[in-house]
Design a protein around this nucleic acid. Structure first.
Lengths: 225, 225
DNA sequence: GTAAGAAATATTGTATACTGTATTGACATT
DNA sequence: AATGTCAATACAGTATACAATATTTCTTAC
């Protein structure tokens, strides 16, 4: 990488607690740590080659992200999610997505809208290649762009929190037949609403988008069993 | 309080980190700790008579509640809130309140609705006594009851998080002339919507309720300066 | 063999000690 | 006086030590 005159990236330092936090979060989200699994401070500290202090702080952070449960004097364990939890989360997400999309209709800059439209082609390519991983990646970018355009820090923050909790289900969901095609269609409607600066329409479409996602995730969960 | 045969309240133990957390949160919310103020671990530990460990953990928790800002290797300080932050929070709250009220229209139990209606009299009494403190207290109960009725844990949790951040402004806001009367009127509309099981109406009224609150808080802030 | 209870162990809670970095202030240089 | 340098200090980051409690294992009584 070419260095600029003034080194921007002066901040290569990350406290161990953040390293541990990221490591554990990744492990939980990718299923390396399973729901219900106990997380013992000493064991984690040894495995990660650090002391208990940063591990403890990381666990506190994971608790507030709702990824682990902390019982005083008992310890931590990876939180399991019931079907109801997922429905609850998606219900809230629907409200946030509605707000975000309606705000995007009002506030999104033309150049950002262009980027959104450019994603359409990427989506279609991913679909035709049946590249679920890539698809999910672009999907994340797509929704992120919408929330970013609202310039509402709090809204963005809450959305990210919800998304992390659904992370474990995002792949399996998109793998289902015809789901990707439907999602692409929804996204097109969302883009059109933003183009037309039609907040009402944007909100409505966003709601039905998440409604579809909810149904699709539930269908998947029922099939799995 | 009368003790039951089996002591329910077996859990009198609270980790120090939670004690410190509560203490600091209270201090911030009641203005004993002012925005911008530095929070030094040693100093706090001394003052509270504990070691640095629980203080550090409490600070991490306060960070995730967005009450303090933590800069690595610099320390913590009480977060200041700009007008934009408040507007952002209220924008999100409006979406959540809309969702909650519309769900309440569908799901609230008859007996809980009765409780809500019973609050009307309390509100009116507080207004006639010009008892702002009491008014704010009932107001909190009122909205809490609505969110509780949704039975959506995630929604309740996010609502509480937002409310804490607005806590500092809730009194000053209600103190303004005629604000309390308007709020009571809004609440009546909300109750009516729930009674009629009219989700659409509930959502609309909730939105306008928060819109009013936003305008009123902003007006207050501008007058203060 | 099972249940109750006590000892042993494991684990979290808390305090303290140590390390490294950022800040501050004194002093020197210009 | 303004600026730069270095030492002193204060502070957060991390590790470790100790205390308290939960869990497990092992007896012992029946």
């Amino acid at each position: 990488m070419i260095e600029t005159k003034f080194n921007i990236n002066t901040n290569e330092y990350l406290p161990l607690r953040d390293v541990v936090f990221n490591t554990l979060r990744d492990a939980i989200l990718t299923g390396k740590l399973l729901p219900g699994e106990r997380l013992m401070e000493n064991q984690l500290a040894d495995k990660l080659g650090v002391s208990r202090t940063p591990v403890r702080e990381a666990l506190r952070m994971l608790e507030l992200e709702n990824l682990v449960e902390l019982v005083p004097r008992k310890g931590a364990q990876v939180l399991d999610m019931s079907e109801k939890d997922i429905v609850d989360i998606l219900e809230v997400r629907s409200a946030l997505e509605g707000l975000a999309t309606s705000l995007a209709c009002k506030k999104m800059k033309r150049e950002d809208l262009q980027k959104l439209k450019a994603m359409e082609a990427d989506f279609e390519q991913a679909v035709s290649e049946r590249n679920v991983e890539r698809f999910v990646e672009i999907d994340e970018e797509f929704h992120d762009a919408i929330f970013e355009s609202t310039e509402n820090v709090k809204l963005i923050q809450m959305f990210r929190n919800l998304r992390i909790q659904l992370y474990r289900y995002r792949m399996a969901h998109a793998k289902q037949d015809s789901v990707m095609t439907t999602i692409v269609a929804h996204h097109r409607s969302i883009i059109r609403a933003i183009e037309n600066r039609d907040s009402e329409e944007g909100s409505t479409v966003a709601h039905s988008h998440i409604k579809f996602q909810t149904e699709s995730i539930l269908r998947m969960m029922h099939e799995k069993q």
